[in-house]
Design a protein around this nucleic acid. Structure first.
Length: 678
DNA sequence: GCACTTTATGTTTTT
DNA sequence: CATAAAGTGC
């Protein structure tokens, strides 16, 4: 955030904010103040007498939702209970499924499976261990769900061997989820959609409840999200969709630009407003971005312009390898901050894939540069947190077999794979959850007494705890649970002192988080488990932390930083090359054959998103060689650098000199001498 | 049959 | 380099 006060609303923004009568589409270019339009429109709606709780603003990421919540809260002072709904599509889905669980054939304490749990189910159905294949099948099923196809329709539409077997797995997968009283992420959209389509009463209720809808990042909606939106809006069609076709980067998740087109067709009275003034970036940055996206097909043409000055020239850094790249970034960060006397938090390093953060972290640690990692390995994906989460889920929903399996083996209590397999098979035949099947006499006949004893004990313990969980506060139960299963001791047994201590810290952080959550929202165990499933990071308030931001480009969408580094601007990374084998050398001109056109277009938009995050300076780097596994692969600079008309700076010698110069100035900083002018 | 140790293996992006 | 399947003591 810059220190200067925000400019007054421009005419287009004002128009978008005041247009309340019908469907409205705001085409908002990068940095054109779209969040401001949404928050001010909410304020305007409240001022116009719309009941705040009847306004729903929908975003895609939790981060965006939280930021918007804060900005709305600052603009419209309301007690917590009376605030507008600001949530992600999926969080809204949870709310609807929770409220309407009975009608949907679910208990309110249904489980939400994360991608890993879901993958395990697919693995069982497919009977393979090929991770690549499993992921492909999972992605295929997800795309079908997002396109609103059921297993039958999927089978009919399936072409080729892979899709056929994926469709068969789909059927089994859906049945398994139902048996577990569990839903996956896609169901959080699909189930509300199903409800609104088939239940006129419920449909009426929800339209009454959410009378005005605002959708952020509309270009990222998929077919089912669009349909959900359309049904929620109803004939009144009081909604505002805000988006930018140039920033559509979730095609791989089913997002489709057709939704922009459909809006015009489905709502002939659609009011389209374009925001074309960019308040974020210097002209040089904006011009590079415009060159990059110029050839991109557009539904609503727009011309972005900036009243800010020309700004600093863009920098391209060529590096020998990824380690050198990381060091170069670290050196430039140190030097730049020293020269500008700014905050670390003004700098962001963006990259294509999470794994790229590793080398970078090392370099920043060496250079003693503080950083925060956003996205990446999320807090809630840590093994120790997933352990606890499995316990929470099991206590809330004994039908959740994946949670049962994890809980019964964590910590180890004498139940092994063979016993579990026997239980699983028996439970499958009897159509009962594993937690219930273990105490049936039919099962006892199948296993030895030695196998049965620990299972029995476990079953009794779970029964005791879940009975308590139904009555007592979630936090209390969690504390006692941890003590009873001896989790802390187990952690310290299974890892060295240091690692165990770190994990235990995560556990206590998590427990604190649950306590706060339970207290704030009067939430049950099940509700806590459900909300955790959607979260990727603990709500640490690290905005206040003065540290360099490290983020994937995807996770940085919607954010802005004074100074941005984009690393890995290479063919194969950005644009990412699918499964094509390690490249033949030379032949950089073959930019048509290996990668499909649509795929490159999305990569181009991704690069566009990266570039347009920058306000004042932009540094792009690439490596001539990159280690992959054991061997090293030669790399070519990204075609996008050329398209932006940036010299791909082959001069690694010059680069090294620059870095040396910067290291020198960093040294000066350490010595406390004033910086050289110029 | 269970739990632990070694060895192969493989890397987009997120709710 | 981290995770997960196969292999080895108990």
């Amino acid at each position: 955030m810059t220190a200067s006060s925000p400019p007054a609303l421009n005419p287009a923004q004002r128009e978008a904010i005041r247009y309340l009568d019908g469907p409205c589409l705001v085409i908002a270019g990068a940095g054109s103040g779209k969040t401001r339009v949404i928050t001010h429109k909410i304020a305007h709606l409240v001022a116009s007498g719309v009941k705040p709780t009847a306004i729903a603003a929908i975003t895609f990421t939790n981060k965006a939702a939280r930021e918007m919540q804060e900005r709305v809260a600052a603009l419209v002072k309301l007690p917590e209970r009376e605030r507008p709904v600001v949530s992600t599509f999926h969080a809204l889905g949870v709310q609807i499924v929770r409220t309407e669980a009975r009608a949907l054939g679910l208990k309110p304490a249904f489980s939400i499976l994360d991608a890993d749990d879901a993958l395990a189910i697919i693995q069982q159905a497919l009977a393979t261990t090929d991770r690549k294949l499993l992921r492909a099948v999972q992605a295929r099923i997800s795309l079908w769900k997002n396109a609103m196809l059921g297993p039958d329709e999927a089978l009919a539409a399936a072409r080729g061997e892979l899709e056929q077997s994926a469709a068969r797995v789909f059927r089994e997968y859906a049945a398994t989820l139902r048996a577990y009283q569990a839903v996956d992420f896609d169901d959080l959209i699909g189930l509300p959609l199903h409800l609104l389509r088939t239940d006129a009463d419920a449909s009426q209720r929800w339209r009454e409840r959410l009378r005005y809808l605002l959708v952020d990042e509309y270009q990222d909606t998929n077919a089912s999200q669009y349909e959900l939106l359309r049904l929620l809006a109803g004939p009144r069609a009081a909604f505002t969709a805000v988006g930018d076709d140039d920033q559509s980067i979730y095609g791989w998740r089913g997002a489709t630009l057709e939704n922009l087109e459909r809006l015009g067709r489905d709502y002939p009275s659609l009011k389209v407003i374009k925001l074309e003034q960019n308040y974020r970036s210097s002209q040089r940055i904006l011009e590079a971005a415009n060159r990059l996206i110029a050839g991109h097909p557009k539904l609503y043409a727009k011309t972005l312009w900036s009243a800010l000055g020309a700004g600093e020239p863009l920098t391209v850094v060529a590096c020998e390898n990824d380690e050198q790249e990381a060091e170069s970034v670290a050196a430039r960060l140190s030097a730049a901050r020293f020269e500008r006397r700014g905050r670390w938090a003004d700098y962001a390093v963006l990259y294509r894939g999470n794994h790229q953060a590793r080398v970078l972290e090392q370099a920043l640690r060496n250079a003693k540069i503080p950083y925060v990692l956003s996205g990446g390995q999320s807090f809630f994906e840590r093994a120790e947190i997933r352990d606890l989460l499995a316990w929470l889920r099991l206590l809330a929903n004994e039908e959740d077999d994946p949670a049962f399996i994890r809980a019964v083996t964590t910590p180890r209590r004498g139940v092994g794979t063979a016993t579990l397999a026997a239980l699983g098979e028996y439970a499958g035949q009897r159509q009962r959850p594993m937690a219930a099947a273990l105490s049936e006499s039919g099962f006892e006949a199948r296993v030895s007494a030695r196998q049965l004893a620990p299972l029995r004990e476990f079953g009794a313990f779970v029964a005791r705890m879940s009975a308590r969980a139904a009555r007592e506060p979630a936090a209390q139960v969690l504390d006692d649970l941890l003590a009873a299963i001896g989790y802390r001791a187990w952690l310290f047994e299974s890892a060295d002192e240091k690692a165990a201590a770190a994990r235990w810290t995560h556990v206590t952080d998590f427990v604190d988080w649950v306590k706060k959550r339970a207290a704030d929202e009067d939430a049950t165990l099940a509700q806590v488990a459900q909300s955790v499933a959607l979260l990727s990071q603990l709500d640490r308030r690290d905005e206040d932390l003065d540290a360099v931001r490290l983020s994937t480009i995807h996770a940085a969408k919607g954010l802005e930083y004074p100074h941005v580094f984009v690393i890995g601007c290479e063919e194969g990374i950005l644009p990412h090359r699918g499964d094509a084998e390690a490249s033949e050398e030379g032949d950089a001109a073959a930019d048509d054959s290996p990668t499909g056109g649509a795929r490159v277009e999305e990569e181009r938009r991704l690069m566009y998103v990266a570039v347009t995050r920058a306000q004042r300076s932009l540094t792009l780097s690439w490596c001539a060689a990159r280690r992959r596994g054991r061997d090293t692969v030669r790399r070519e600079p990204s075609r996008f650098l050329t398209e932006m008309q940036l010299e791909a700076a082959r001069a690694s010698r010059q680069t090294a000199q620059e870095d040396a110069r910067e290291r020198l100035s960093r040294l000066r900083a350490l010595l406390g001498k004033p910086p050289g002018r110029g």
